[in-house]
Structure formats: structure tokens, C-alpha cells
Design a protein around this nucleic acid. Structure first.
Length: 739
DNA sequence: AACACCGCGTTTTTT
DNA sequence: ACGCGGTGTT
């Protein structure tokens, strides 16, 4: 067999990894070093050179997008669809296993997947049923408790409360939640993973079967795996398996949601025969950008170590712009985009990256008035919209009557006179009988527990679902959806909504019908009826509208969202201490290092030009604060930086109106000392009190000023006292003494 | 059942 | 500043 197509366009390091002898392999792949290429070529190599059956290969990613890309690239490499080879997300693969082995996994056949919003509703319902105060038992915290324990592989029954009554209650709620899920036949995201893990752990015959089958497991973005994902991987790989994992410790930015970079080191301990490869040649960025990123990341400790290099040019310097405020920052970016486009560039070459979503607003306003097309990534996705979830709830009830969450969602939608009181009666009956709401409703309408009107309305609802369910049998999927929208009255309901909001919702519902029309059921999951396959699909892949992704728009997104992408021109905005690194991470080393990796990720997105911008004054959450430039700017080798200053000295911006800024900015090479030295413009409104200054307070002792707000006697300062911690003080009364 | 008001939180996101 | 969720009013 001719293996040239697999190997010809690989560099030495990539080729070594792709052709590594069968056995455990770890590829440390730097940003832009051809990680996906190595992964896909390795699969092709296994099949064509090692004679491995595609049937024996399991490739795991984190996002559907990555899985789709991998599938497409393997197809083009092999010249045919990868067919029987399993490629999917951790959750997708766990789901597939649970569908196949629902019985052994202790699930019902028609189990449904719930997203985190549904999960939270269910938790709230439990809290209400337990008559617990939601301000004391915050649903989000309960949800976090449950999910993080599941991520660590812990069931409620494994947990010990010790002497902690709060923890005891949390554990109780976790157990109640597990019960409710079992009763209603729903499975949340974390449960998919944990269940799939337990399925293999507790069914040795099944595990043996899959171990035998999947001798070759490939994992993308390995640094993002959490405890349960890694445990699952170890189970399936077993002693003799050949896990091939690719990751980059410097791009680990999801520690806060349970990802464990430590798995990289652990992998070496668990598989002593491990072969390690480093991919350090970068094909994306200029030498200067790489030098900046390398320089920054060396400030982190405990790295596995990696230095990116390129055979290409140094390119242009990193440009730093110190804006007066966030509007000035946006205006500067606008101006640079205009220049880029005027020179024949495309809008979509440009990415605006920021730490938190709230920062997009100023840019959006500015782009709107400048008529610059843009697209903001993130935000509500199609299948997360309320009207779509309502429609899906009807479909879910058709598929599984026991789905209480869906029942509650639509029992009175469109309104049919089943109010809070009737529902409470119903919940009580369900609780008493230990049955789902559906069965409780069937029983209750035969009694006089409800008023005659409510009982009739409820009967109408039950009949509606039964009628729909019967009517829809055998129809094509999109006709089922269409029929349901009609018969349920959902379309009518939204049409009656006079505002154009209603119109948009009707359009979305029609969009749902076309989504159903275009839905191709996965060839490997043919056992599942189309409706159920569709429901699982929409929950697992909430669908990013890909349609307009290629339009010529400036791309705006958070740094996290940008991971894995690349753009010719990148603006890292809001480079201020407190914003990036974020205030909440600044205090602890791990948090700060994760922020630094995030900055590294941001820098390495840039191909040709990288801008770092910050605002000396920023209005956030309605209050102005003064900030220092991000420490990440200072950690960037200064000789790579060119500072940009406005050519005209302009008066400090006034609260209202645009400031008279001519269109040009001058580039001036920076002097090492430029950062950290106070600037005369944007002097804080409280004399003598500036950020970082040391002050003494009569009672609290000495501390450092963290924040300033307002002016005059009402002005407030935030001071971090050495002994008393952080406090807000009103200047008028505080009597602070500068040191 | 629809609407007004109040109070709270406010990093990052996938599945 | 702003949006969301929960509560109370008409």
C-alpha cells in the first residue's frame, strides 16, 4: 500500500508521532502545531499501515465541532467515509453505549437527556417539594454540588457528611435528585459519563467485549479531561490498550469546570510504556507572536515544557494601545479595522477577544454606528430558546410520558386553565403514589381532588398528548413536528402574541420543522425511533447556527470560545489587571496561572498581527474604575512591543459626546519603563489616592488601594488591609493617610 | 393571566 | 447598568 499521502506533508516530529509503534502515546502539541493533523493521520496510519480494522478505533473529542472536523478530515484522507469507526464527543459516545445497553445500565429504554437548564428546574422542584428556602439552598449551588461529585465519580451514597449539617443536606438533595431522575427516566450530562463508566466497571463481560473491540483509543484536548473521563478511558484501554492522546498543558483553561491537567502527568504513571512526542513547530503565527507567547508562558510553574518556533518571518511587532476608556478602546479597534478593509482586507480576518461577555457591548455599539459587520459568538443557541424547548417538551412527552419536567413545562402551555393550585395537587398525588405526574394525572381526573373545570382541562391535555402520539405514528419526522405544533396550539399561541417577538418565535418553530426535515439519523443508532434519535441529538448538540459563520464579519468572542481557532488579526482587549487576569483569579496562584494560559491561548490565535489593548478607565456594572495595565503585558518581552499613542494630545474625554479624535494614530517604539509608570491623563478623581498606593487607616491599619469609585466627598475606595482584609470605605469618613 | 416592581448578582462553557 | 427571577397588584 502506498503510504505517501499519509506521511508526505508531515514534519519529522509529526511523522514520528503518527508512525509510533503500537502502544500508549502522548503527544504534547503546542498551539498551531498540527495537532488535528497528527490525530487524523494517525488513524489513517493505523488502518492503512498497521492493518487495524476501523471497527477497532475509538476517537474522542470534547465538542461536536471537533468531532465533525475530525470525521471530515479522515474521510478526505482515506477517500471514503470512515463508516464503522467511532468518532464522537465523550458525551456522544457515552450516550451511544447507554442506548445499546440501557438495561444493563439500569435505565429505561426511552430515557431522555436533559440539559443544565432542565436540570436546574428539576432541582428547584425538589427544593420546593422539600419546602426548603431557595435563598438558603441556592439551586445553582446544589446543581454544582451534584455535578462536581458526579464528575469525580461519586454517588450520593458514597458521600459522608461528617459533622457538617449543610453538607448532609446537600447529600440528601443529591440522593433525592437521583431518585427523581430515575423515576422520570431522565439523564443529565454528567450522568451520561458516570453511567457509562459504571456500566463498564460493573459489567466485566461487557467491558471485556469493548476492550477487545476498541484496541485503539484516540483522545483530543486531553488536558481538558476530568476525573471521570480519565477513569473511563483507563477502563477501556486496560493493560494492553493503545491510548493515543494529544494535549497541551499550556492550553488548559477549563480547570474551573473540573478539567484536570494533572491527567497528563498521571497518564505517564498509569502507562509506563508511554512514548512521548512534542510538536513545537508552529504553522500559524509569526516569530514575534510566538516569542511573545513563549515569553509570557514561561512565567508559569510546573509546565511540561515546550517552546514554539516557526521557520517563517518575525513579522510585525505586537502593538499595545492604552485607551482612555472602553469607548476609546473600541474606537481604536474600529479605526484599525477600517484601515484593514480599506487596504483590501476582509472583516472576517479580524477577531476581537475579551475575557468576559459583558465587554462585547461597547464594541457592538461602536460597530453598529460605524456600519462594520460583526458576529458575536456565544449567547443563546437555537435549541436553548424557550419556544423551542416548549415544542421539544411536547415531543418528549410523546416519546416518554414519564418525563415530569416536560409535563410541567407544557401542561398549561398554551394556557388551558391548569393553574398553580391544580399542579400542586397533582404533584402531591404523584409524590404520594411514587409515580410520575402523568400517571398521577390519569388517576386524579377520576377522583374529585380537582375542581371539575381543572379536571376537564387536565383530561383534555392528557387526551391531546395521546391523540398526538397516535396520530403521529408512522409520519416522517418533520411531519410529526409540524403536526405537533399545529395540534398543540403552540403556533396559534405565538401568533396571537402581538409584539414582533411572537413572529420571531413562530419563525423559530418553523425552523425547527426544517431542522427535523434535514435530520439524518446516525447510521449507527438505527435501533432508535427517529423522534427519539432527534430528541437526543438536539440535547447533545444544541446546534450553533453555522449558516452565517462564513459571512464577512468581524468575529467577536471570549478567549475561551476562541480556543482552537485562528485569525490573521487578533485584538486582545480589556488587558487590565482585575479584568484579565480576572479579579477572582488574581489571588491564588493556580487561578492566575490559568488566566495566563488563557492569555497564551489568545495570543497564539493570531496569525499575522496581534494587538493588546487596555483602558485606563472602564465603566463596568455601572461604576467607573481605574486599572493598571494587565501584568500579562508586562510579562510579554518588551522588545517585541510597539506602543501606539494617539498623535494628538486630546483633552480627557467628557462624559457625553464623542471626543475630537482625528483618524490617525502614531506608532512609537516603546521604552521599557513605559508600563507601570503613572500617566498624567486619566488622573483618578481622588487626589493622592491611586490604585496600588499604600494607605493607613486609624482602626484597620495599613493596606493597599484596590479600587476607586466616584469623586468628591462621596467617593469610595476599596482597600485591602493586611490584617482586616478588603473593605470599601467612604473617603469623607475614612480619614486615610497616604504612605 | 398579564403586568409592574424590587432585589440580586455579575468570568470563563460544553455536553 | 442591566437583566433575570420572584413576588405582588390589577
Amino acid at each position: 500500500m502506498n503510504l505517501d499521502p499519509i506521511l508526505e506533508r508531515l514534519n519529522a516530529a509529526q511523522r514520528a508521532a503518527v508512525t509510533a509503534p503500537l502502544g500508549p502515546v502522548l503527544v504534547l502539541a503546542g498551539a498551531g502545531s498540527g495537532k488535528t493533523r497528527v490525530l487524523t493521520h494517525r488513524i489513517a496510519w493505523l488502518i492503512q499501515a498497521e492493518g487495524v480494522s476501523p471497527h477497532a478505533i475509538l476517537a474522542v473529542t470534547f465538542t461536536n465541532k471537533a468531532a465533525g472536523e475530525m470525521r471530515a478530515r479522515i474521510e478526505s484522507l482515506l477517500g471514503m467515509p470512515p463508516g464503522v469507526l467511532w468518532i464522537g464527543t465523550f458525551h456522544g459516545i457515552a450516550h451511544r453505549l447507554l442506548r445499546r445497553h440501557w438495561h444493563e445500565a439500569g435505565l429505561i429504554e426511552s430515557f431522555q437527556i436533559i440539559d443544565s437548564e432542565d436540570q436546574q428546574r428539576l432541582i428547584k422542584k425538589i427544593l420546593r417539594a422539600q419546602q426548603l428556602d431557595e435563598t438558603r439552598w441556592v439551586p445553582r449551588e446544589v446543581q454544582w454540588f451534584i455535578n462536581s461529585n458526579k464528575d469525580e465519580g461519586r454517588r450520593a451514597k458514597h458521600l459522608k457528611a461528617g459533622n457538617d449539617p449543610i453538607r448532609a443536606q446537600m447529600i440528601r438533595l443529591y440522593a433525592l435528585y437521583e431518585e427523581a431522575c430515575a423515576l422520570t427516566g431522565v439523564v443529565d450530562f454528567a450522568e451520561l459519563l458516570l453511567r457509562a463508566f459504571e456500566l463498564w466497571r460493573d459489567q466485566p463481560a461487557l467491558l471485556a467485549h469493548y476492550r477487545q473491540r476498541f484496541r485503539h483509543i484516540l483522545v483530543d484536548e486531553f488536558q481538558d479531561t476530568n476525573t471521570i473521563q480519565y477513569a473511563w478511558l483507563k477502563l477501556i484501554a486496560g493493560e494492553g490498550g493503545c491510548p493515543f492522546v494529544v494535549g497541551d498543558d499550556d492550553q488548559s483553561v477549563y480547570g474551573w469546570r473540573g478539567a484536570r491537567v494533572e491527567n497528563l502527568q498521571q497518564f505517564g504513571r498509569d502507562f509506563p510504556a508511554l512514548k512521548l512526542f512534542r510538536l513545537e513547530q508552529n504553522y500559524r503565527s509569526t516569530g514575534t507572536i510566538l516569542a511573545a507567547a513563549n515569553g509570557l508562558i514561561t512565567n508559569n510553574s510546573g509546565r511540561l515544557g515546550k517552546t514554539l518556533w516557526t521557520s517563517g518571518d518575525d513579522g510585525e511587532p505586537i502593538r499595545v494601545y492604552a485607551a482612555f476608556n472602553e469607548r476609546d478602546e473600541a474606537e481604536f479597534v474600529c479605526q484599525r479595522i477600517r484601515e484593514h478593509v480599506a487596504h483590501g482586507g476582509l472583516h472576517r480576518d479580524v477577531a476581537i477577544l475579551y475575557r468576559s461577555n459583558a465587554q462585547s457591548r461597547v464594541f457592538e455599539e461602536m460597530f453598529l454606528s460605524a456600519r462594520i459587520p460583526y458576529r458575536v459568538y456565544g449567547g443563546l443557541r437555537f435549541f436553548e430558546r424557550a419556544e423551542i424547548k416548549d415544542a421539544l417538551a411536547y415531543l418528549r412527552l410523546i416519546a416518554n410520558r414519564r418525563d415530569d419536567a416536560s409535563f410541567e413545562r407544557v401542561v398549561n402551555l398554551p394556557t388551558r386553565g391548569i393553574g398553580a393550585k391544580s399542579l400542586e395537587t397533582l404533584r402531591g398525588a404523584a409524590r404520594a403514589a411514587g409515580s410520575p405526574l402523568w400517571e398521577a394525572a390519569q388517576a386524579t381526573i377520576e377522583t374529585d381532588a380537582l375542581g371539575p373545570k381543572a379536571a376537564a382541562a387536565l383530561r383534555g391535555f392528557l387526551e391531546l398528548i395521546e391523540r398526538l402520539s397516535a396520530e403521529v405514528q408512522g409520519l416522517a419526522l418533520h411531519e410529526q413536528v409540524d403536526r405537533m405544533l399545529e395540534v398543540s396550539g403552540l403556533i396559534e399561541f405565538h401568533k396571537r402574541d402581538k409584539a414582533d417577538r411572537g413572529e420571531a418565535r413562530v419563525e423559530n418553530l418553523e425552523e425547527l420543522v426544517s431542522a427535523a426535515r434535514g435530520f439524518q439519523t446516525d447510521s449507527l443508532d438505527t435501533e432508535l425511533p427517529p423522534l427519539e434519535a432527534f430528541l437526543a441529538h438536539v440535547t447533545l448538540e444544541s446546534g450553533e447556527g453555522q449558516a452565517d459563520a462564513w459571512e464577512d464579519c468581524v468575529q467577536m468572542m471570549t478567549l475561551h470560545t476562541a480556543k482552537g481557532l485562528e485569525f490573521p488579526i487578533v485584538f486582545l482587549t480589556g488587558m487590565e489587571d482585575g479584568l484579565f487576569p480576572h479579579q477572582r483569579s488574581i489571588g491564588d496562584l493556580d487561578g492566575l496561572e490559568e488566566e495566563r494560559r488563557l492569555c497564551y491561548v489568545g495570543m497564539t490565535r493570531a496569525m499575522k498581527q496581534l494587538y493588546l489593548t487596555y483602558a485606563e478607565q472602564r465603566r463596568l456594572h455601572g461604576i467607573d474604575s481605574y486599572s493598571q495595565p494587565s501584568r500579562f503585558i508586562k510579562e510579554t518581552p518588551q522588545e517585541l512591543i510597539e506602543e501606539i499613542r494617539p498623535r494628538l494630545q486630546v483633552a480627557r474625554p467628557v462624559a457625553s459626546g464623542r471626543f475630537a479624535r482625528e483618524s490617525s494614530y502614531d506608532s512609537v517604539p516603546v521604552h521599557r519603563s513605559s508600563y507601570g509608570t503613572p500617566r498624567s491623563r486619566a488622573e483618578p478623581p481622588i487626589p493622592g489616592m491611586r490604585l496600588g498606593a499604600r494607605v493607613r487607616h486609624g482602626k484597620f491599619g495599613e493596606g493597599v488601594i484596590l479600587n476607586l469609585e466616584g469623586s468628591g466627598p462621596q467617593a469610595r475606595v476599596q482597600v485591602n488591609f493586611e490584617r482586616q482584609g478588603t473593605k470599601w470605605l467612604v473617603m469623607q469618613f475614612a480619614n486615610l493617610e497616604p504612605l
